[in-house]
Amino acid sequence: MRELAAYTTSTGEAIQFWVLAVFAVLGALSTILMRKAVHSALCLAGTMIILAVFYLANGAYFLGIVQIVVYTGAIMMLFLFVVMLVGVTAADSLKETIKGQRWLAALCGVGFGVLLIAGIANASLKDFAGTGKANAGGNVEGLAALIFTKYVFAFEITGALLITAAVGAMVLTHRERTERAKTQRELSEQRVREGRHVPPLPAPGVYARHNAVDIAGLLPDGSPSELTVNKTLRARGQIRDVSQEAVNDLKALEQRSADRLERAGTEEASK
């Protein structure tokens, strides 16, 4: 592999490139086209892994590993955590609201891409040096030698940047409690005082058939009651409506019991 990344490229690398490049582009397109943020994140993670492979193929062994560990492993997982926290909102439809935005975006994208590719094609990059010589003493050692000599200041500053970022994230997400949390007694007294909904909220679930918290309890007429579902789920619009199923199930049950009663009746009659 070391020779591979050196002065020439092998047929194997070419095959690898053409196959994986297709998947990388597909992953990128899926990232921007998938409706749900979770799917986008997963597609992006796939693209990043393919990029890690490309790094390895280019002789950047350290970066390839870091790409997998840090990017795909840590950063993308952080994204997934936030997706979980924030959730999918109703605004996440792919319908465009700004007039002409999509056309302009497509125009700019195509123009930019064409220009960039034309620029690369225009450059004379027939010959290349290869990383063989640079990696002679080992890729990690080579990087370390550069980082701790030529780029040592940038490296130190990066450390400061990371610390600052960590503190900043804490400051941004930390919420100071400015008042004491209300006790259960105070909450119940407040409820009585307001007189809006005095008894406890009804529980979710239907007829002991569903006990999942995202399933609304049904009112006597068979329509779901949103009161029974947790506030956060309500806000996200993640209520599973099973009223129709429940009614159908009930019908089926009645049908079956009717069938059985009828059969029992006929059997009894036949006896």
Binding site: I32, G113, I117, L125
Partner: peptide, 23 residues
């Protein structure tokens, strides 16, 4: 194969990402 193709791929991915930001 010339490593230049990696550059093409990078340009393509970059453009896709930028378009994604916009839409």
């Amino acid at each position: 194969m010339n490593p230049v193709y990696y550059l093409y791929l990078a340009a393509l991915l970059f453009t896709i990402g930028a378009t994604g930001v916009l839409i």
